[in-house]
């Protein structure tokens, strides 16, 4: 017996099923952004632990004297400063190294390393320092009381305290006197499916010393490079499993 149902009722059912799928697709398409399906998530959708955003710093490509990444970060987040280097915020900084034995010179950026086990999150009394499911370490500006214990705990000196009044903050980078802040890995850009400002600036400057991507996605260029070359974490002895890795150090 032929199992295929060719009755008018069945045809109607098929039509409705296909039509509703089409309507659903039309409704969802602007949100899911079919173009970069692998990277982005819907704005209201929570960050997922299936992703872990990270950075690879290729020290051999990083140029001494170039601070394109630092300038881009300052511009992106409105870190104007007050000409007071002791207290002005720095989310990313260029560090120049000279090997004590060989005098070999290196230059590289240091920023929040977005640890898997962040000491800043451990010590924060109010839970204002937190790690998003996708690995980005942030400060909740509403619950930070400005105790600075996270700054004492950070092995990378990656955090800054806002020492004075600010004006003209950017809407995507909430900042306020008396709270602590650090590199957000440009979370606002990442959530739009873009790269952090420092990465873009480094690429635009022609150095390509910074690679951004999803460590968990085997097809991602970052994950591929991490799998192919030897990289290291800063203060690997602390076993914090940082999301920022260095090659050529």
């Amino acid at each position: 017996m032929d199992m295929k149902d060719s009755s008018p009722a069945s045809a109607r059912r098929t039509f409705f099923t296909q039509a509703s799928a089409g309507v659903a697709l039309l409704a969802l398409a602007p949100g899911v952004r079919l173009v970069d399906l692998a990277l982005a998530r819907v704005q209201d959708e929570p960050a997922s632990a299936t992703q872990r955003w990270g950075l690879l710093v290729d020290v051999d490509r990083c140029v001494s004297g170039c601070d394109a990444c630092v300038s881009a970060c300052d511009t992106e987040h409105g870190l104007d400063g007050n000409e007071r280097p002791q207290t002005d915020a720095q989310w990313i900084r260029k560090v120049d190294l000279v090997d004590n034995n060989t005098e070999h010179q290196l230059s590289l950026p240091v920023m929040c390393q977005h640890c898997e086990e962040p000491p800043c999150v451990d010590v924060c009394p109010t839970g204002a320092s937190f790690r998003r499911a996708d690995g980005i370490v942030l400060v909740d500006k509403h619950t930070c009381i400005g105790c600075r214990y996270c700054m004492m705990a950070c092995p990378y000196k990656a955090r800054s305290f806002i020492h004075e009044d600010l004006t003209g903050q950017k809407t995507h980078a909430p900042r306020g006197k008396g709270t602590v802040e650090s590199c957000t890995l440009c979370v606002h850009r990442v959530d739009r499916g873009e790269s952090p400002a420092c990465v873009e600036a480094c690429t635009d400057a022609g150095h390509e010393a910074l690679v951004f991507g999803d460590i968990n996605d085997r097809n991602d260029p970052l994950a591929t490079q991490l799998a192919e070359t030897t990289t290291r974490e800063l203060r690997a002895d602390l076993k914090l499993n940082t999301a920022v890795r260095y090659r050529g150090l």
Binding site: V121, D122, V123, C124, P125, T126, G127, A128, H142, T143, C144, I145, G146, C147, R148, Y149, F161, I162, K177, G178, T179, V180
Partner: peptide, 22 residues
């Protein structure tokens, strides 16, 4: 000395029990 002493109530109502400070 806190950056935000006005948020003392936050310190009293939000606890991270892994923090020795809390």
């Amino acid at each position: 000395d806190l950056g935000r002493p006005d948020r003392l109530i936050v310190a009293m109502t939000h606890y991270n029990f892994k923090s020795i400070f809390a």
